[in-house]
Each structure stands twice: as structure tokens, then as C-alpha cells.
């Protein structure tokens, strides 16, 4: 049986006060866990709590020793006018360009503000996905992606990733149903 990367029990998280939880699950290498639930249920807050991005009010998070985490957050800063190429962006997070879709692989030498919104979003997502990390946390990864990006992401996630564990928060039920090996409901 694959190594347990994360064991979460009774997790309650929030900011000034608790806003989400309790949540419990176990994640092993090779698994893709979906966090589902209605808007406002606190899925993104719970995802952030997994790496310490928000305050934990209760419960316990047990991580495998030396666990390397990559988190793709919702909402990025506007990069218009910043002279950075796609290759430089991937280099920052240590992401490999191997496996990029053909419609993006050939444009890595261009400035980010020359790419379409969907291409830029996919590249940012890829910079968090294709990194040497044990656990990848994806928060609404299909937001602002075009149809080609969503299809490629679903295909990529659908392939076996035995070395990593992935937690996905998404309102896109199609994506959750297609790629997740298990789904945990988060109550409102």
C-alpha cells in the first residue's frame, strides 16, 4: 500500500474566527482527492490550512516527514507590463516544461503579457503542477482556463501520478468526477 502523505482529523480553520470544518481524510501517494461542497463551505480555507496559510482552530494535520508541498492559489496578481518569459516563470518554481501542451510549449520564450489569458493561466497552473513536490494542492484550477486548457488539465490529472498526492478544490463537477480517486464533502 502506498505511503500516507497526509492524515487530517477534525480540522477546523479560519482567520479571526473559525469558518470551515471539521474535515477529516487520509491521502496516499498516487491519490487525487477532491474537496467538494457548496460555495462558502470553506474549501479553499481548508486547503490553505493544510500548509499553514490560515489559522487552525482545531483538529490535527499529520504530514509525512519532509513532505514538499506545492500550492496553486486562486487569483493571481496582474502581470501586465512585467518583462518575464514563460521559461523564466517555470524556472522560478523549478517546474519542468516537459509535458506542456503543444500550443504552449512553443511560446515559452515570449513575454507573459503576450500570451492569451487562458494560456497565461495554464502556465501559472503548470508552474505549480510540474514541480518536484510530494503533495500538490489545487484551488479551482480550471478558473480562467480556456476549453483546451481544461481538457489538457483533465487529461494530465487523469494519468497515473504515483509519486505525488493531489488535493483538488473545484466547482467543476466534471473535473472532480473525471480525475479524483476519492471525493470528500465539505459541509456549509
Amino acid at each position: 500500500m502506498a505511503e500516507v502523505l497526509l492524515r487530517v482529523t477534525g480540522l477546523v480553520a479560519g482567520y479571526a474566527a473559525p469558518v470551515a470544518g471539521p474535515l477529516g481524510f487520509e491521502l496516499r501517494r498516487g491519490e487525487i482527492l477532491g474537496l467538494a461542497g457548496p460555495n462558502g463551505a470553506g474549501k479553499s480555507t481548508l486547503l490553505k490550512a493544510l500548509w499553514g496559510g490560515v489559522r487552525v482552530f482545531g483538529g490535527h494535520i499529520e504530514k509525512a516527514p519532509g513532505l514538499a508541498i506545492s500550492h496553486q492559489a486562486q487569483g493571481f496578481d496582474d502581470l501586465r507590463g512585467v518583462p518575464l518569459t514563460g521559461r523564466e516563470l517555470l524556472g522560478l518554481t523549478g517546474a519542468t516544461p516537459d509535458g506542456l501542451p503543444p500550443w504552449l510549449a512553443g511560446r515559452l520564450g515570449e513575454r507573459l503579457d503576450r500570451l492569451s489569458g487562458g494560456q497565461l493561466q495554464f502556465l501559472r497552473l503548470w508552474a505549480c503542477l510540474a514541480v518536484p513536490a510530494d503533495l500538490i494542492l489545487l484551488d479551482e484550477p480550471t478558473n480562467n482556463l480556456d476549453r483546451a486548457g481544461v481538457a489538457y488539465l483533465a487529461d494530465w490529472l487523469g494519468r497515473a501520478h504515483s509519486g505525488q498526492g493531489i488535493v483538488v478544490v473545484s466547482h467543476d463537477h466534471g473535473l472532480i468526477d473525471a480525475v479524483c480517486t476519492r471525493v470528500v464533502e465539505v459541509g456549509a
Binding site: 500550492h71 492559489a73 518575464l84 522560478l92 501559472r124
Partner: peptide, 17 residues
């Protein structure tokens, strides 16, 4: 690198402890 990451991926380092 940390300066660029701070703007582009502000959670990069914290997520890695």
C-alpha cells in the same frame, strides 16, 4: 528568485515551510 516569487507566487516559500 525570492523577489520574483514574492510577486508571482507569494505562497511558494510558506507552503514549503
Amino acid at each position: 528568485r525570492p523577489l520574483l516569487l514574492g510577486r508571482l507566487f507569494p505562497e511558494f516559500y510558506r507552503a514549503r515551510g
